[in-house]
């Protein structure tokens, strides 16, 4: 398989995740769609790693896994805190930070 196919697939996954971030309103699902975008980026990096026969991209993908885990922990902690304080779980309702 040519590397192009993998890159187009990664672009497609990134775009689907992007659409989800825009359209969905539940913060848990927004975080899930962010994971989709991250996995699209990871696939692109692995494709280029294979293209060059160089392992650096794989280490970068591991770093992406670490950052995604940290992001999930903080984001879901925020969701739980919102739920406890009875803030509606809807990203459209959170307007307090608007400048």
């Amino acid at each position: 398989m040519a590397i192009e196919w993998y890159l187009v697939l990664s672009a497609m996954l990134f775009s689907i995740g992007f659409a989800g971030v825009l359209v969905r309103r539940n913060p848990v699902v927004v975080l899930l769609c962010l994971e989709l975008m991250l996995s699209g980026g990871a696939l692109a990096m692995l494709s280029f790693s294979r293209l060059h026969g160089d392992g650096d991209g794989q280490v970068f993908v591991l770093m992406v896994l670490v950052v995604a885990a940290a992001e999930v922990v903080v984001g879901l902690g925020l969701v739980v805190a919102m739920f406890r304080r009875r803030i509606p779980l809807d990203v459209d309702e959170m307007k307090e930070l608007r400048g």
Partner: peptide, 27 residues
């Protein structure tokens, strides 16, 4: 619509690039 436009844009940017090695299976 924005997401579809983004997909088309990335695809054009990737496939239209002059990186000829993209058509191969890598090294």
């Amino acid at each position: 619509i924005i997401a579809a436009a983004l997909f088309i844009e990335i695809s054009i940017a990737v496939l239209g690039s002059s990186l000829t090695a993209l058509g191969t299976e890598g090294v």
